[in-house]
Amino acid sequence: MELFIDILSWLSIIIGGVFCIIGMIGLIRLPDLFTRLHGSSVTDTLGAGFLIFGMALQSGLSLTTAKLIIIFGLILLTSPVATHALAQAALHAGIKPKLTVDKTGGHIAGEE
């Protein structure tokens, strides 16, 4: 049972680290602000989720696990709020998404 929990924890931490790196590579390589938001959200949900799950498996049922769950809940609550505010402020400031085909018909939400 101990070995099983260790293996699961290793797997979770490695997958979480890989997702963190994938999200930040997306932040570097994607062409546009609005596509870079996707890369940031990969790190915030999957990366943080798997890393915190791996840490919670190692600490068992204790106060540490409760604190880890609180941290994950706070990240899940605050990260979409910050991302949404950022996207809306960028649209309001007149930054347009890069589109290969303009499907908006010249209209972009947030433009007066």
């Binding site: 931490i13 490695i14 930040m24 570097i28 890393l51 791996g54 190692q58």
Partner: peptide
């Protein structure tokens, strides 16, 4: 095992910076 995750997070921090 936590050191591996810490190294991955630090690499991501460099990319974000």
């Amino acid at each position: 095992m936590f050191a591996v995750g810490l190294i991955a997070v630090l690499v991501s921090l460099v990319l974000a910076m």
